[in-house]
Every structure is written in C-alpha cells, then in structure tokens.
Design a protein around this nucleic acid. Structure first.
Lengths: 201, 201
DNA sequence: GTCTATACATCGATAGAC
DNA sequence: GTCTATCGATGTATAGAC
C-alpha cells in the first residue's frame, strides 16, 4: 500500500542528510516545474524525469496528480507556520519582515508559494483556500503591528504586488522588481505606517 | 485564405451592432474562459462551444491556438492605449484613476488583463512582454503625476496587488478585495503621495 | 464560412514483471 | 520500491464535404 500522500505533514528527513527520499525529490521536482515553468509543464513525465525516477516509480508515491498537489499543500502548511512565527519574532518588526520576504529570494518558501499560486490559477480550490488562509494570517499580524486595518491591508497589497510581479514577469523585463531598492521601500512604508495614521477607527 | 489572425488590430464593428462577427465572438469566448476559469479550461472545444461555432469553424478564423492568443493580445494593444489616454485625462488625476481601475469591475479591459495574465503564467513570452510593456506605460504616467519614482512604484505595486488578488482568489474568501473600501484606499494613498515625499531625488 | 470526420500527439493512470 | 508496457481520454490540428 502506497503511503497516503497527505498523511505525514512534518516528517522531514534529517536536514543535511543524503539528499532526501525519492518522495521528497518528487515533491521538489513538481514544485520546481510549477514555479519555474508552468502548471502545464508540470506533467507526470516531466516531474518523474526531473526527480530521477520513472513515471511508475512516481505513481507509487503519489497515486494521482491530485495527491501530488496535496503533497505540496501539506508542506506549505508547515512553511506558513514557520513564517508567521518568524514574522512575529522579527527583530525589526512584522512590517519590515513581511516586506523584505515579499521580494523574490529563491527560498523554499517562495518557491512553494509561487507553485501554489500556479495551482490556484489552474482553478484548484484547495490551493486557493491555502493562499486565502495564509493571507489572513499575515494580515492579522500586520494589523496587530500597525493598528489601522486599512494601512495593514495596503501593506499586504504591496507585498502581493511583489509576488504578482515575481510569478508573472520572471526573468528580465520587470521594472518594479528590478528597480526598486528594498531598503528604500521599507523606509518609505515605515514612515507611511507611522505618520499616515488615518482619522477614523 | 483565412484572415491572418493578427492583421486587423482596430477593426471593431459598429458598437451596439448585431452582437459581433463570429471572429469577435470567438475571441470573447477565449478571453472569458481564460479569465473566468483557467488556461487549461480554454480548449478549442470549449471556446468553440461558447462562441456557438464548431471547432472547424473556429479554426477557419484562427488557424492555431497561438493565433488565438495573438488575437487577444492585439485587442489588448488597443485597450491599453485607451486606458493610458483616459488615465492622463482623468478628472481626479492619474493616481486616483489608476487605483480605482485596479479594482475588479468586470469591464472588457479587466477581463483582457486577467486573460493575458493567465497566458503569461502559462509561459507565453508575448503575454509577458505585453504585461511588462503595459506596466511601463502606467508607471511612466504615475511618475509624472507624483514626482517621486519610489512612490510611483509603490502605487503600482498596490494596483498589482489588487489584480493579483482578483486573478488568484476570485469568488469568495478574498479578504483584501472584499473588505477594502476603494474610497478609503484612494484617500489614504493620496495623503501618502503628497505628504510622504522622501528626502532624496 | 461553417460543418463532420479523423489523424496524431500527449497526458494521466493501470497492470504486471522484477 | 522501481521499472516497462500499454490503455483510454482528451487536445490540437488537418482533410474534405457542403
């Protein structure tokens, strides 16, 4: 009986170990193809090839494409918990942390988000829920940090804009990502969040 | 000889006329399926069915799927010109216009952008170029309006964030879109753009 | 200009050997 | 646990009648 795709959320193998199990390599390959190429490009054949297994071998670990998606969603559930915690404990505060991590960094976390965003575009309801849920978490922390809900939502929109630009316009030709210095942006938003406190609420 | 998909950019039929040619209906159907569903859902079969023609009929007007994409990109080229002009002439200024039109409105323009965003996610280089180009146009106008480049880019990021949320999290469960009042947002950003002028440049 | 019929490729998934 | 072989469904595109 194949391991039930969505069963072991947090059983990461000893970090630094021999490069991960076949199961993990498959999930990595799927995520990479989703994020670096497209949902269409992430076929079972392509995933298997990149993971260094056969299609049959892949399907032993993940009985269907849906199970494969469940796999990345499960891993994301752990990553978002880590991120929220780090955001809360960040030295320069949640706003600073949030904005800086909204910039593309090739981290596992960013790759997972872009991969899931691609699944969401492919109309996968679970992927949409996962993103909506993550968004609520971030927003909650931002709101605690800046006080005003509108300012918090505005900061989130800026972060989303960064991700949109990453996911949509990779490679070259991205004005916003390439010409915006993150330190300048953070400084601007900080003044904005402090000084721009609206009248109401 | 079939009409070469990308030949007549601006030959829109008399507005209000008998509901458009088959060619236009096909393009509308393709755009709708892309924007409302997904790139995968926009198959030739589905497009033909929604446009009320057979697959063969569709392929007479657009010899390939690539030609179909060219069709929506050509129409977008006209729409973006209109939008930039309207943005420049907007009564309450470009910033106000830009932010308000970044909110989903079910207009033809918005539908085209989301459709092209979906094509861009499917790794269509022309769709990516079209979005990058449109972005440069908007940014240029914003920069003229607000002066500071960083503030202009920040406003663009907010608009992009809105689109990201529209394209990614349609239907319910979108905190940002559903709970953000556009008037409040515009007022906030206006104060931000005026008061928040940074030191440098 | 629009249709039906069909060729051809590719993808997801199954079966069964090792 | 991993492989090869293959089936069935679906998608793009062509051929040719009307």
């Amino acid at each position: 009986m194949p391991p039930a795709a969505a069963s072991t959320p947090a059983s990461s193998p000893a970090p630094g170990a021999a490069q991960g199990s076949a199961r993990d390599r498959v999930l990595d390959a799927y995520e990479e193809l989703l994020a670096e190429q497209s949902e269409r490009a992430a076929t079972l054949d392509a995933v298997a090839a990149r993971a260094g297994v056969s299609k049959g071998g892949l399907l032993y670990h993940f009985a269907s494409k849906e199970a494969l998606a469940s796999g990345v969603l499960d891993r994301f559930a752990d990553l978002i918990e880590d991120d929220i915690r780090r955001m809360r404990e960040a030295e320069d505060g949640p706003v600073d942390y949030f904005l800086r991590t909204s910039i593309p960094t090739d981290s596992r976390f960013e790759r997972a988000i872009v991969a899931i965003a691609r699944l969401a575009q492919a109309a996968d309801p679970r992927a949409r829920d996962a993103l909506a849920s993550a968004q609520r978490r971030w927003l909650e922390v931002l709101q605690e940090a800046v006080g005003d809900p509108l300012v918090a939502r505005t900061i989130m929109l800026i972060g989303d804009g960064m991700y949109y630009n990453t996911a949509l316009l990779p490679a070259a030709n991205n004005v916003l990502r390439d010409e915006t210095d993150i330190d300048d942006l953070v400084a601007l938003i900080r003044r904005f969040a402090e000084g721009g406190r609206p009248s109401g609420r």
